[in-house]
Simulated scan of single mutants.
Amino acid sequence: MENYKTVAESQTTLTELMIPSYANFGGKIHGGIIMGLMDKVAYVCAAKHAGAYCVTASVDAIDFLAPVEVGELISLMASVNYVSNTSLVVGIRVISENVKTKEVKHTNTSYFTMVAMDEHRSTVQVPGLILKSDEEIRRFFQAFHKKELKKYLRMEEKRMKNEFEIAESIEIIKNERCIIEMEPSAPAPLKTIPGAAEKS
């Protein structure tokens, strides 16, 4: 099928050993290291599907479900879940493996939105996606649904900004962990009318 690709054509797995220099002060692998590897595998997966240079446009929340230890192998498995016109969503599942005990942990999952670009940094259309299983259809629909939710949230944020009511907001957050210490508002300066002094 012209200008359509299967999910399998661009699926990518990156495996890397976690070395001591990747550790944080607590002795666990620094989250930034894993995030950097996720960005790398997202790029490879997206570029293989798009056949073009891709840039990261946004990243869904990355929730770390389990720590990664020094000496473990982590594998980052990336698949294209959804395509729009010039953008695509890459789903990434990260697992860690202790090579001695053979324990395998799911450490996190996230979704990277990538945009395809040409050599002039203009966006280009990406191939469509051929869905071959219930799971691929579910992932495509889930990514589409998230995109629609993001549109709604952006509109809500804009509405809240335009219709912000301080008293109502204080009432809603009064039981949260915050202390409101607002200084009294200064009185508005009196407006002077040019030439008024001369007339009096």
Rank of each mutant, 00 (worst) to 15 (best):
N108D: 00
S200Y: 15
R159L: 10
A196W: 02
V126M: 04
M182H: 03
L17M: 14
N175F: 08
V124Y: 08
K132M: 05
Y82S: 09
A23L: 03
N81F: 13
K28F: 11
Q11F: 07
V115W: 02
Y22V: 02
S133G: 04
L73Y: 13
E165G: 07
Q125F: 01
K5V: 07
A197E: 11
K40V: 05
F112L: 09
N108H: 01
T6F: 07
M1S: 01
E103K: 12
I29T: 09
G51W: 04
M117R: 12
E119R: 13
Y111C: 03
A188I: 04
A46K: 04
V70E: 06
D60N: 07
C54S: 03
E198Y: 06
S87E: 12
S122E: 15
V99N: 06
P127T: 02
A42G: 13
K151N: 09
L131H: 01
I180D: 08
M1G: 03
E198D: 05
A143R: 03
Y53W: 00
D39T: 08
E69H: 14
K147L: 02
K191W: 03
A66I: 00
E171Y: 10
N85S: 15
I193P: 02
K151G: 06
G31D: 05
R93W: 00
T192R: 04
A46E: 05
A167P: 06
D63S: 15
S10N: 08
K146V: 12
A188L: 08
D118C: 05
Y4D: 00
E165P: 01
I62W: 01
K147H: 12
V124M: 08
Y152R: 07
G51A: 14
V70C: 05
E181C: 14
I19Y: 09
L149A: 09
I29Q: 01
K40L: 06
P189R: 02
L17C: 07
S185G: 08
E72K: 05
M117C: 11
Y111W: 05
A23I: 03
R177Y: 14
P67W: 02
K161C: 04
E69I: 10
R177G: 02
V80H: 04
V80S: 07
S122Y: 12
E148G: 06
E97A: 09
G71N: 11
G195H: 05
F141R: 13
C178H: 06
V89Y: 11
F25T: 10
V115N: 00
S79A: 13
V99D: 05
T109I: 14
R139Q: 12
K174E: 14
T101L: 05
G195T: 05
F64Y: 14
G36Q: 15
S122W: 07
R159N: 06
E181M: 14
P187H: 00
G91H: 11
I29F: 02
K5L: 04
T123D: 08
V90L: 07
T109A: 14
E163Y: 03
V41E: 14
D60H: 04
M114V: 10
N24G: 01
A78W: 00
E9G: 09
N24C: 03
F64I: 04
V99W: 03
V124T: 15
A46Y: 06
G27Q: 09
R121T: 09
F25P: 02
G27F: 12
A197R: 12
M77A: 07
V90M: 12
I137D: 08
